[in-house]
Amino acid sequence: MRADLARMTSEPEGEAPASQSRTMKAAWADLVRGLGQHELWLLLGWQDIKQRYRRSVLGPLWITIATGVMALALGLLYSVLFKVPIAEFLPHVTVGLIMWGFISGCIKEGADIFIDNEGLIKQLPSALSVHVYRLVWKQTLFLAHNMVIWLILVLIFPRNLGWDLLLAIPAFALLIINGVWVAMFFGIVATRYRDISPLLEAGTQLLFYVTPIVWMTSTLQENMAEMGSRAKLAQLNPLYHYLEIVRAPLIGAPLPAYHWWIVIGFTVCGVILALIAMRQWRFRVSYWV
């Protein structure tokens, strides 16, 4: 096993490690080199899942069962409270929970990604981004398992999805790109400042309640007319737009174009922010862990 890892992480002869240069080009080269070491992070991500559910009969399906039970409970409860038909509200909650699992996993586990991989970082000469790709790959596998719940809902509550369903593919791609920069940025910062991780844990929990996952923005505006324009404050939450570009195609809801532009804008800014953090501090991570 160790020999295989060494082979996957070996540096090409005659090339200097990119970490020796504090430039944006070198930071980008780390991302590219890590992507090229896909055999390594694909293997490590799969091993993470096997290790987590070792000796378990159902394995990762436990996450699917837990997500499905939570979606069913919250969907039934809040559909009654908000007086929304269950056929409309349950798919909204379910897809929201599935996507939230991916987003929150990249944020919370991303903060500890380099700390948890201290041994590999110090012993194997791989690109720093390998550990980030490993995390995002693992979260993607969890998301794929949970999409079984969505398939079941489509069969129970048939919806006219149409060709708009294909919009979920670029939306998933944007989520993955954001998962990479989020894990990279917070992973580097939280390795240097260890208080960041518990702050992100608490902050992510708070974001769950202010993001329209178990509630709908349309219902909020209808049931709280006395609040007027204040009900539209949910639009200021960027995670709302991230959820919408994936959820709307999957449940057959209309998707205004401004959601895409907001997500693309945040994605570009986030990638630049992660590259700046890599340029400044990525070569210090091995000393901080």
Rank of each mutant, 00 (worst) to 15 (best):
L167D: 01
L81N: 01
I86P: 00
L35R: 01
Q47P: 04
T64S: 07
V210L: 00
A257R: 13
L90F: 05
I156C: 05
K25I: 07
A6V: 03
H145V: 07
C106M: 06
L207D: 00
Y78L: 09
E39Q: 08
S10V: 12
I176N: 02
G119M: 14
F208A: 03
L128F: 00
I115M: 09
E201I: 04
P60L: 00
C106E: 07
L77A: 11
I264N: 04
G75W: 08
L143P: 00
N117C: 11
E39W: 03
W215E: 02
Q123S: 14
G68K: 08
V154P: 08
G14R: 10
W260L: 08
S10T: 13
P198E: 06
L43R: 10
R54D: 09
G265D: 03
V148T: 06
R134G: 12
V84Q: 09
S10D: 02
L206T: 13
M227Q: 06
G105W: 03
A3W: 13
G162D: 11
A3H: 14
Y242W: 15
T267A: 10
T219A: 15
Q205A: 12
L128P: 00
P212K: 02
G101K: 10
I176W: 11
M184S: 11
W163F: 14
A277S: 06
V130D: 03
A87H: 10
H38L: 14
G162L: 09
K25F: 06
M216W: 01
L167K: 07
F266H: 01
D4I: 09
I262V: 09
L220P: 04
V80A: 14
C269S: 03
I121W: 02
A274R: 03
A127S: 15
T204R: 05
D4Y: 14
F172W: 09
G179Q: 01
V130A: 02
D4W: 14
I156Q: 09
A253V: 03
L141V: 06
L207R: 05
H241W: 02
M147I: 13
Q51S: 13
C106H: 08
D116A: 11
I176H: 09
A168D: 11
M224I: 12
P170K: 00
F283G: 06
L206W: 12
V154A: 15
R159I: 10
A190H: 04
A231C: 15
P212Y: 08
L153T: 05
Y193V: 15
L153E: 15
A277G: 04
T140S: 10
V154I: 14
S197P: 02
S10F: 05
F185T: 15
G101P: 02
S104T: 11
P238R: 12
L275D: 01
A173E: 11
T64L: 04
A29C: 06
W41G: 02
R247N: 13
I107F: 10
N160D: 06
L153C: 08
L76M: 15
